[in-house]
C-alpha cells in the first residue's frame, strides 16, 4: 500500500502544488487504494495487487497536458539534495532545537527563582536577612538576565538555520537519501514517543506537587509552585528538543505538517498559532500576578490547564464555524 502512495508522490513530485493538484492526487490515491483492496479481496498477492494498480495508472503527462500544468520544468530547477546538505541540516536542526529548548527553560526558571526568593524572604531562612522587597528586586533582576540570555539563544539558533532557508522553496530528495532518512526516522520514533509520554506525564503530575505542598504548609506553597514550573520547563524542553528532531525528518521527507496543506488548513494553522502565542504568555502573567499579589500559589496553577482547554474549545468552534 505504501508503494502506491510513494509511486503517486513520485508522479506528482514535479507538478506545482496547488489546490487542484492536491485534490486530484487525493482522488487518485483513494481510487487506487480502493482498487488495491478489491484486488486483495479477490485473492491477489500484495505484489500482484500493487503491480496491477500501478500498471493501470497511465501516463502523468496526459493529465499534465489536459490540466495545462507547467509540469516537468520545476523538477530541473529545484536543487537536488546532497548527503552532506541533508545531514548538516538535521544536525543544525537538532542543535537549534536544543538551544530553543534551553532558552525556554531559562525563561521559566526565572519566575521559579523569583517565587522561591520571595517565599524564602517571607517565611524561610532569609527572613530578616533580606526584606521581601529586596528579594523581589533580586528575583526580577535574575529573571531579566535569564530572559536576555534566552533571547540571545533564540536569535542565535534562528540565524544558524538561516543558511537552510533555500530548502523552503522546495528541493528534490534522491531515492537513496529518502530510504536512509526513513530508516533513521523509524529508529527515532520510540525515543520520540517516550519523550512525549514523559513530557505529558510531567505536565499532568506537576500540579499534584502544589496541592500536596499546600496541604503540608500553606505559607510556603510558593515552593510547590516553583517546582511545578521547573517540571513544566523540563516537559517543554522535551517537547521542543525531541519535536524539532522529528520535524527535521518530516520536513526532509515532506510529510506530516509539511505535506502540501490545502490553503484553508494553512490559514487555520496560522490563526491558531498566533492566538496561542498571545494566550499562553497572558496565562503566565495571570499566574505570576495572582501568585505574588494574592498569594494564591495553591490554586493559581489552574490557569494553565484551563488555558489549554479553552484553546482546544476555540479550535473546535473555529473549525465548526469555518465548515458552515
Amino acid at each position: 500500500m505504501d508503494t502506491i502512495a510513494a509511486y503517486l508522490n513520485n508522479m506528482f513530485a514535479s507538478l506545482p502544488r496547488t489546490e487542484q493538484t492536491y485534490n486530484l492526487k487525493q482522488d487518485l490515491l483513494a481510487n487506487m487504494e480502493e482498487k488495491y483492496h478489491e484486488l486483495k479481496k479477490e485473492g491477489k498477492s500484495e505484489n500482484e495487487a500493487v503491480g496491477i494498480v500501478i500498471s493501470e495508472f497511465g501516463n502523468i503527462d496526459e493529465l499534465v497536458e489536459e490540466l495545462g500544468l507547467p509540469g516537468g520544468v520545476e523538477d530541473t530547477l529545484l536543487p537536488l539534495l546532497a548527503p552532506e546538505d541533508t545531514w548538516s541540516y538535521t544536525a543544525a536542526k537538532k542543535r537549534a532545537g536544543f538551544m530553543v529548548g534551553i532558552g525556554v527553560v531559562l525563561c521559566m526558571i526565572g519566575p521559579a527563582l523569583l517565587i522561591v526568593l520571595v517565599t524564602l524572604a517571607e517565611y524561610g531562612f532569609l527572613r530578616g536577612v533580606l526584606s521581601e522587597d529586596a528579594a523581589g528586586m533580586i528575583g526580577v533582576s535574575i529573571l531579566l538576565v535569564l530572559i536576555a540570555l534566552a533571547v540571545g539563544m533564540f536569535i542565535y539558533s534562528g540565524s544558524s538555520m538561516e543558511r537552510f532557508k533555500y530548502l523552503e522553496k522546495g528541493f528534490n530528495l534522491p531515492c537513496f537519501l529518502r530510504t536512509e532518512l526513513e530508516q533513521r526516522r523509524r529508529a527515532y520514533t520510540p525515543t520520540y514517543t517516550l519523550s512525549l509520554t514523559l513530557g505529558i506525564c510531567l505536565c499532568v503530575v506537576s500540579p499534584v506537587l502544589v496541592i500536596i505542598w499546600a496541604a503540608v504548609s500553606e505559607d510556603t506553597t510558593g515552593y510547590g509552585a516553583a517546582i511545578m514550573l521547573l517540571l513544566i520547563a523540563l516537559a517543554v524542553f522535551l517537547f521542543i528538543y525531541y519535536g524539532t528532531i522529528k520535524e527535521s525528518f518530516s520536513f526532509l521527507l515532506k510529510e506530516g505538517e509539511y505535506i502540501e496543506l490545502p490553503p484553508e488548513k494553512k490559514e487555520e494553522k496560522r490563526i491558531m498559532g498566533s492566538i496561542a502565542a498571545i494566550v499562553w504568555p497572558l496565562a503566565t502573567c495571570i499566574f505570576l500576578i495572582s501568585g505574588f499579589v494574592f498569594q494564591r500559589w495553591d490554586i493559581n496553577w489552574i490557569v494553565f490547564p484551563v488555558t489549554g482547554i479553552l484553546l482546544g474549545i476555540f479550535g473546535s468552534v473555529y473549525n465548526l464555524v469555518k465548515a458552515r
Binding site: L24, N31, K35, E38, E56, F57, G58, N59, E62, E66
Partner: peptide, 24 residues
C-alpha cells in the same frame, strides 16, 4: 473508481481505462 470499475465490467474486461485517462 466506480466508473472505471463499471467500464471494465461492461466491456467484459476488454477495456481498462487508465487512471490518468479517466481524470483528464
Amino acid at each position: 473508481y466506480e466508473i472505471s470499475k463499471n467500464i471494465r465490467k461492461l466491456s467484459d474486461e476488454k477495456y481498462v481505462m487508465k487512471e490518468t485517462t479517466l481524470y483528464s
